[in-house]
């Protein structure tokens, strides 16, 4: 019995270094990404995260074009492109009749097409798959340090800006009336979104990087109400999905990145049906309270 459990849950990580590396990388991504996802969700920016993930692609692709699959070049390219779109979409939205969501949609469609074109110009289809879906099973030291560093910066920064970020989300007019923190806090938050997407990009690729942010956040919302609980539960769900997804991929020879996101997706669907605030609970005919 214990042998079976060991073989199923522990042995894959104990025996193979690439599994241990993947474990560290994916769990770090999950723990930092999930709280970011919670705020994206609560600020009604879930799709903004998705759009931003695509916006990173051409920057990373230009880095790839200049120096191949170099971590530094692709990271820098991704950061620059992501921040440019985050700031640009906000600026265009303020200066034109288009709302921010329309601007973001336009920017990310352009980015995705441009990025895929640039990668295809030089690389093979394998490289393109690498960029689009990541290589969580091939994280080198440099990539792990980058991901762990991003996770650390994210959690510390979130702790520092938690109060103004919450105030800005609940009642932006109030915050503006007592402080000038609103706009900088929004920018710092968008910077964290981009950072985490760039980190996620190496492990999960541009298309799935946002998965470890949004799916745990949405799942947590179906179980708990309180903000602190949401942040903790989302990080927990994300980390558990990362572990379970890696094991699933190991035992059934599935691609690792998609397996992690699929696991998080299954948790989301289960929460949607069975969560304390999910579909079944809403239909259950429980007697109403007196007050």
């Amino acid at each position: 019995m214990i042998d079976t459990i060991h073989a199923a849950l522990i042995a894959p990580f104990a025996e193979f270094e690439f599994m241990r590396r993947a474990l560290v990388g994916a769990v770090a991504l999950a723990i930092a990404g999930a709280p970011i996802g919670v705020f994206l969700m609560l600020r009604r920016m879930s799709l903004t995260g998705d759009a931003m993930a695509h916006a990173i692609l051409p920057g990373a692709a230009i880095g790839y074009l200049l120096s191949g699959l170099s971590l530094t070049a692709m990271t820098l390219g991704g950061l620059v492109a992501g921040l440019a779109v985050a700031i640009g979409a906000g600026a265009v939205a303020r200066a034109s009749v288009l709302k921010e969501d329309a601007t973001l949609a336009a920017f990310y469609l352009l980015s995705l097409a441009l990025g895929v074109t640039i990668v295809s110009m030089r690389g093979s289809n394998v490289d393109l798959l690498h960029v689009l879906f990541g290589t969580v099973l091939a994280l080198d030291d440099q990539a792990l340090v980058l991901i762990a560093g991003i996770a650390t910066v994210t959690l510390v920064t979130l702790a520092v800006i938690l109060r103004p970020l919450t105030a800005e989300s609940v009642d932006p007019v109030f915050l503006a009336s007592v402080s000038r923190a609103g706009a900088p806090v929004h920018l710092v938050f968008m910077g964290l979104v981009v950072l985490n997407l760039v980190g996620g990009f190496h492990a999960l690729g541009t298309l799935l990087a946002v998965g470890l942010m949004m799916l745990p956040a949405a799942s947590a919302r179906l179980w708990v109400e309180d903000l602190t609980a949401l942040l903790v539960v989302a990080a927990g769900i994300g980390a558990a999905s990362a572990v379970a997804g890696l094991l699933l991929s190991y035992h059934h020879e599935l691609p690792a990145g998609p397996a992690i996101i699929l696991t998080a997706g299954i948790v989301y669907l289960a929460s949607l049906v069975f969560g304390r605030r999910g579909l079944v609970a809403a239909r259950l005919a429980r007697p109403h309270l007196e007050a």
């Binding site: 609560l42 109060r163 105030a167 007019v173 109030f174 007592v178 402080s179 923190a181 309180d226 903000l227």
Partner: peptide, 26 residues
């Protein structure tokens, strides 16, 4: 109408924002 009532904060935390001028962000 300018407040996001869907955001999960308690009455206590919401009212506590009134101390901003004194305690600020930290």
């Amino acid at each position: 109408s300018e407040i996001d009532r869907g955001f999960p904060v308690s009455v206590f935390d919401f009212v506590a924002m009134g101390l901003w001028g004194r305690i600020g962000a930290f």
